[in-house]
């Protein structure tokens, strides 16, 4: 089916999908439209199979997460033949942007580093908890990067009445980071699986994304793992498996 023109603002033209900001049914309900365009480099049959499968699977995973209490955008509408998902708009910075601002900001002489560190630690704790919960309901995200973790102001916390925008607001605000929820987005490569291997690879992908984007972030990732260990029921086996995946991924036999 041919793509339709999207009524909205193109926000991001990623490798996999185009993301638009628009409104859903009412002009005051913001939404996000995710479209997977056809990839002309792939065989048409393979392209259709992948687009359809990823679209449906993403919508199903989002629903499953939401019903099991893992925070993610709500699905409003799915058109799998056109490769479109219309979903809830999440207001807030990605963890990636937030970390960049924190790490850059921490080198400013005016900022209190300790304060930033405490906030970061709390955030890492929260991320570990969220991923732990996700894995406990047997969902594998498949593309855990810091760009796919968003921060959303908690609606029912009474500390601030005005919604804050951007990570600078988060950094400078007096409120603790615990007023912010970690929201998982982009389940395009996700799947349902209870295998330790899949969960370990999920963590490995995050670790790699973390360390390649933020070379100094080893300590932060350790906090995530520690929090995961405490908050996920099957964590012991998964973390043992992670050691194996690291060894195999990093030091597999490489013949030129």
């Amino acid at each position: 089916m041919p793509p339709r023109p999207i009524d909205g603002t193109l926000l991001k033209q990623g490798a996999e999908a185009h993301v638009y900001r628009s409104t859903f049914l009412l002009p005051n309900v913001p939404c996000l439209i995710k479209v997977r365009p056809t990839k002309p480099y792939r065989h048409a049959t393979l392209d259709m199979r992948l687009t359809k499968h990823r679209c449906v699977s993403e919508a199903r995973l989002l629903n499953r997460c939401r019903s099991m209490g893992v925070l993610c955008p709500a699905v409003y509408f799915v058109d799998e033949k056109r490769g479109e998902i219309i979903m809830e708009w999440i207001e807030g910075p990605s963890v990636r942007d937030f970390l960049h601002d924190c790490i850059d900001g921490a080198s400013d002489p005016g900022k209190e580093e300790d304060n930033v560190d405490v906030r970061l630690d709390a955030l890492m704790e929260n991320i570990g908890q969220t991923i732990g919960k996700l894995h406990d309901i047997d969902i594998i995200h498949g593309d855990l990067t810091t760009s796919n973790l968003m921060l959303k102001h908690r609606e029912n916390s009474g500390t601030t009445s005005e919604p804050q925008q951007g990570s600078q607001a988060l950094l400078t605000a007096d409120t603790s980071l615990l007023d912010f929820d970690v929201v998982l987005i982009d389940f395009g490569l996700g799947q349902v699986s209870n295998s330790d291997e899949d969960k370990a690879v999920d963590l490995y992908v995050l670790e790699r994304a973390f360390l390649s984007t933020h070379p100094r972030a080893t300590r932060l990732f350790d906090i995530i793992l520690d929090s995961y260990k405490r908050n996920c029921l099957g964590s012991a086996v998964v973390l043992r498996r992670l050691q194996e995946v690291r060894l195999r991924g990093r030091k597999k036999s490489m013949v030129g």
Partner: peptide
């Protein structure tokens, strides 16, 4: 003819 073969991409791996 394209037969259905598993397609395994995990993030950038």
């Amino acid at each position: 003819h394209l037969i259905d073969i598993p397609y395994t991409v995990k993030g950038m791996d």
